[in-house]
Design a binder for these strands. Structure first.
Lengths: 132, 132
DNA sequence: CTTTTATTCAACCTGTAGGTTGAGCATTTT
DNA sequence: AAAATGCTCAACCTACAGGTTGAATAAAAG
């Protein structure tokens, strides 16, 4: 794989993260996702509990669709929405990766503190794992 | 706890989710977080790799700070930024909750399909758990 | 004490997100 | 065929996000 290709791939991955995080940043859209977690539903059904116009909800759905979090298939005049089960994998992966680093650093700091407390002049010693 | 209090608490939780998801939706801000995952750093250090002005980065940092993902403590004229280790717990929780529901539904559908294939007239039968 | 360095504050510009309303287009119902 | 239903498209408005530049403030270095 050429360097340019790799960069392009990374770019789309970044863009996808952008889109999914942005999609999840709106409370209305999160509510829609939660609704769809129970069962698939038509646009009108989804819009019903909200105060805003049907059009506004329709727009939110399009954002979710563009981010890949929800999918649509038409059945006559009804548009049936459902969640794309794998769509959160990438964001979840990013978050877990970050937490892993943070935990590792916390772990190291804790180890250092313990060492300093026990023996202010010694270097590395035993370690006990498992943070969070 | 009175009903109004509960609603207020839910509202702030929602707002916090909004803020963190929105903070993570920007690639520059994610890069800043990744940088801070290695070690804490001053504003200028953080800004260095980016094309944009220092002021722009400063703004991004404020967004991250407002969302609770990064923390700041001043040391002389330097502002030292670091990540708030627990700040992703809530978003991570939300994502995991959603995935749990999705997986449960996928599981149920799969079970149904297996049943129909094996014995098109029978009802519930054995179940094997563990998705993903 | 003057100058440099680190950072924020304030004003401004441009694009886009999220909402509205009013048509318009298919499909289903009568 | 006509009317009702489900949904989108298009134009528009307002607010805010993300960037710029040009001070202003605070601490450190000369």
């Amino acid at each position: 794989m050429i360097e340019t290709e790799a960069r392009k791939k990374a770019a789309t991955r970044t863009a996808r993260l952008d889109a999914v995080f942005a999609a999840l940043a709106d409370p209305t859209r999160r509510a829609i996702i939660e609704r769809l977690s129970r069962s698939e539903a038509r646009v009108t059904e989804i819009a019903e509990p909200f105060q805003m116009s049907l059009n506004a909800v329709s727009k939110h759905i399009r954002v979710l669709e563009a981010s890949g979090v929800v999918e649509r298939h038409r059945k006559g005049r009804d548009h049936i929405l459902s969640i794309n089960t794998g769509s959160l994998d990438e964001v979840d992966g990013w978050i877990e990766r970050m937490r892993h680093f943070w935990d590792a650093r916390l772990d190291a700091m804790e180890r250092l503190l313990v060492e300093l407390k026990q023996d202010p002049k010694s270097s590395h010693k035993d370690r006990k794992h498992g943070s969070r």
